[in-house]
Every structure is written in C-alpha cells, then in structure tokens.
Simulated assay, not measured.
Amino acid sequence: MVIRPFKLTLLIGLSLLSAIAAVIFGVAKADALQVMLKPNPPVLGDTVSVWIATDQKTGVPPTVSVDRKQFPAFQMSANRWRAFIPTTPLDQAGLKQVVVTGDGLQQTLAMQLGDRDFPTQSIWLSGSGSDLEPTDYEWDKVSAFKKLVTPQKFWNGAFLKPNEGEITTGFGVRRYYNGEFANDYYHRGIDYAGGYGSPVIAPAAGYVRLVGTVSQGFRLHGNTVGVDHGQGVESIFLHLSEIYVKEGDFVKAGQAIGAVGATGAATGPHLHWGLYVNGESINPVAWRYEGVE
C-alpha cells in the first residue's frame, strides 16, 4: 500500500503529539509501565505485593507510595520489580491510591482496602502494670530490628509453622484494659500453646539479627530471637526458655532456634510469633499457607 505524503505527515504529527502528551501528562503506553496488585482487593492485615514491569532495563528502582508513605521496590529479574505494602488493623479501610513511578512514567492504581472484624478481649490489670512496659534498652533493640530492610531475599515459598502447639490467640485481636478500649493496640502476632521446652523453628531462612535475654533487660518480650528474612520481612519470637542461636547466624527454614518458655510478660508457656513487613506487624496467614513473593 502506498501512503500519500499528506497521510504520512499526518501520521508523524499524531505520533509527535502522543509523545508530547506522554511527557506533559504522564501518559504511557500500556506496555511501558505495567503494575499489578496482589491480592486485589486486600483486607486489613494483608500484605499487598506490587509487581512492576518496565520496558527499560536501567536498574533504577521504581518508587511505590500510598498516602505519601513510600515503600522500597526490589529487582526480581531484568525488568521486573516488587514492593510490599503492609496493612494493619489500625489502618482506615476504604479507597487507597497506589502511586508507582518508574522510567519517567507514572501510574496510579485504585486499591479498595476492605474492612475486617477482629475479636476483642477484656483484660483487667492490678498494680502499676510496669511489667508490660519494655525497658529502654529492650525498646531500642526491638525497634531497630523491625526497621531492617536488607536488599537480599532469603525466604522461598510458604513459611513453616514455628511450633506444633495449638493457636490460642490469633493476629489482630483488640483489647480493653480495665474497661477502656486500647485504640492503638492489636495483637501483633500469633500465640502457640506449645509445651514448655518444645522446639521453636525458623519458619523461613534468614539471618539472626536480634537476640535479647531477660538478664539484658528484656522485661516485656522475655528471651527473644529476631530473624531477618530480607527485603523488609522479619520474624520475632518471644518468651523463649532457651535460645540456640546468636546474632549473625544464618538459619535455614525448619532449623531449631530456641524453645518455648514463659519469660517476660507471659502468664504461661507459649510462643509468640510476630511477622513484620516494612516495620508493620501483618497477618502471617497468607505467608504460612499460600506464600507471598
């Protein structure tokens, strides 16, 4: 087919206008910056995976933000990236805007964060309750651990159950203390009623980045181990009777790292396992049964 000169000029002009519009208005070809959210829609407590594909292989990570809070993206292959958005029971359910920028292009995706009912408990305390407050040393060590963002990814597939005991308290339970609702509290993990001295295993591979003991001032958490699984994902294990690892050790999935105990603020032997993503305690269920990548 022969294209007449005026048609060729028109085609070039339209292409030029499209390019100018892309620069001015951030309009991109659908295949230039592809973004997918999983799960979509999520509910409170879910970890949202943001998968990003670009045409260019610059090696410069895209940016991902929600409500002006930015989350790190990690390169998973030549032109694919992944970021995690943690959600918690304290978040406001409703429509969220996920803004992704990469290779000079930007996409905004609507994310409908669904509500979820969490059980409530009433707890009555006597005295000052000082045993429920961490020491300054304990607070600083645990806070620093939860903020770790290691570039490498050490886990692979679904996480293992860290203890064979039955679950006594699930994730996200809200509480009344002496009849007053604790607005900023939710149970940040899962409690397993394992027998005293029963093994606690690493649910996934990673480096031991936190070891704290009662003798060092871990008054609230008791004997504690924290494992860094990489890319902002960390596990913390509380109230242990024994610790089998030291800071800097690399542990494999299924490796024994300690034993169930009742140290710290515990009414009886049990394991508290908390899973954190980008500093926020999230629901471990999907990580245990489906695997989050």
Rank of each mutant, 00 (worst) to 15 (best):
H270Q: 00
R4G: 07
N283C: 10
A19N: 14
D117R: 03
D191L: 04
S128Q: 13
W273G: 00
M1S: 08
T169D: 06
G179C: 04
F159C: 09
V35L: 07
M36W: 13
A21R: 07
R219I: 13
M1T: 14
I201R: 09
A259S: 13
S130P: 06
R82Q: 05
D67K: 07
T150E: 12
E133H: 12
G268N: 03
G264K: 09
Q231H: 03
N183R: 15
F74D: 11
P89S: 02
L90S: 06
V60F: 10
H229V: 11
D131V: 06
L240S: 02
S126P: 10
T135K: 05
E180G: 07
L160E: 12
L113N: 02
G279D: 13
R4H: 09
K96F: 14
A78L: 14
S65E: 03
F159D: 07
I20F: 06
Q231T: 00
G13C: 06
V142W: 02
L33K: 06
T101I: 06
S198E: 13
S128D: 15
A259Y: 02
S18K: 00
K96Y: 15
N163G: 10
D249V: 09
K57T: 01
A265I: 00
Y137G: 01
A182I: 12
A19C: 14
W287K: 03
W124R: 11
Q75D: 03
K38Q: 11
V50L: 00
G127N: 11
K29E: 13
V50W: 04
G248A: 10
L238D: 02
V98S: 00
L33P: 08
G248H: 08
L113T: 04
T168W: 00
V35G: 08
E293P: 11
I243C: 02
F159Q: 04
G170V: 09
G102M: 08
A205M: 11
R80C: 01
V2M: 09
D191T: 02
S215C: 01
A259R: 14
D228R: 06
F171M: 03
